[in-house]
Amino acid sequence: MEAIWLYQFRLIVIGDSTVGKSCLIRRFTEGRFAQISDPTVGVDFFSRLVEIEPGKRIKLQIWDTAGQERFRSITRAYYRNSVGGLLLFDITNRRSFQNVHEWLEETKVHVQPYQIVFVLVGHKCDLDTQRQVTRHEAEKLAAAYGMKYIETSARDAINVEKAFTDLTRDIYELVKRGEISIQEGWEGVKSGFVPNVVHSSEEVVKSDRRCLC
């Protein structure tokens, strides 16, 4: 029935309208690419297991959010219970890159008292000829905020796995080191079912989590 997993992480995917949030998630969770799909309203839910090391599986619960401003009042309620996030912009849309800062500000306000581990994602990298944001400036911005940067394409399935698993691995390391801890009433990280293995050292460590963004 239930696949065995070590932890469950909740991730949130944010960014401007039409940067390709839903497509990226669908590629990751369903392995397919839809040329056109309805705009997301409110929040959609997805899920997948990832294996970060042989035998070590993490269950990801992914919230796909609507990009349009009007839905913020709904979507911001999901920041609080997320441990990780993918902040997307479209490399062919300069404006969506310029808004990255706003998105981070937005989350910072609403994630309190928790923090989210973000990765900056330059999406639609298959459309390199229409590029409006260079890799260099995106990397610079990501570094300034203490994030990793990765370029992906849902259409050509470039780096989609990597974007999610790298983020998952980073969060896992932080959990293992006790920098992120499982807390009552917080959905960001949950402990899973592991037969015959005790992870006492990794669990319920009361310590402050450091902001990585």
Binding site: A34, I36, D38, P39
Partner: peptide, 12 residues
């Protein structure tokens, strides 16, 4: 702009 990007995605 928002309308313009949503219309092609309406009833796809």
């Amino acid at each position: 702009r928002q309308i313009h990007i949503d219309i092609p995605r309406t009833n796809p």
